[in-house]
Design a protein around this nucleic acid. Sequence first.
DNA 1: CTATTTAGTTACTAATTTGTAACTACCAAT
DNA 2: ATTGGTAGTTACAAATTAGTAACTAAATAG
Lengths: 115, 115
Amino acid sequence: MRKLQSNPFNCSVVKAINYIGGKWKPIILISLYRRENVRFGRFTVLIPDISRKILTQQLKELEDDGLIIRQEYKEKPPRVEYRLSDFGKTLIPVLKALHDWGGQIENSEINKTWN
Amino acid sequence: MRKLQSNPFNCSVVKAINYIGGKWKPIILISLYRRENVRFGRFTVLIPDISRKILTQQLKELEDDGLIIRQEYKEKPPRVEYRLSDFGKTLIPVLKALHDWGGQIENSEINKTWN
DNA sequence: CTATTTAGTTACTAATTTGTAACTACCAAT
DNA sequence: ATTGGTAGTTACAAATTAGTAACTAAATAG
């Protein structure tokens, strides 16, 4: 959860945006929607412009918010898989609404994500 | 439109969030959904914690993005009314989706906005 | 013994967003 | 002449978010 919108006005819409509004969070969530589970390193391939630090941070916030599950295998070298939680899956219709609205504006490459 | 998410990854969800993700934008949009038109000064009453500078800024971005219409009456003292544009009205289902999702988390005061 | 692999962490910096306080313009009323 | 009302603007500062580069750990491969 971000703190930007530490909004004295208690608004559900703002609250929802605080969950998904991180710069890379929608892309992370969509990746997990499409792939069931994704390893840390895989994210850095799927999202080339994200740094490991920011990726860690966004994943941790999503995990703290209960939207994703982090599963660590006690192996060396390490293996960590991320997946959507049941709660996270309830976001899918919301993401689709945002996607459809945002997509109408100008159709572009990865708009086919949902199709 | 904010620039925070100047995202090289062209994602419709991110794009949508860039339109509505300003700290006060959802509240402004919901106010306009409920009231048809709102004057500048009225916003400062409806949203007591917003400063005139930030209000101006958020309204201008919403106007530049085509979501709201600014109507200025040539009077003294000035009168300026804001309303949702037709394009802005297409956001309503999206805002509802966000509201419903955000509302399920913990029900609070102004959650009745949509009911 | 050194390099490789994976999933990070740390210290520091840069960019973006939000906020404060004081100021402007114009007309009407006191 | 001063005050009041509306809708701002300006210069500046603070808070938040994102990014860089270098570093860590532990086992395995060569």
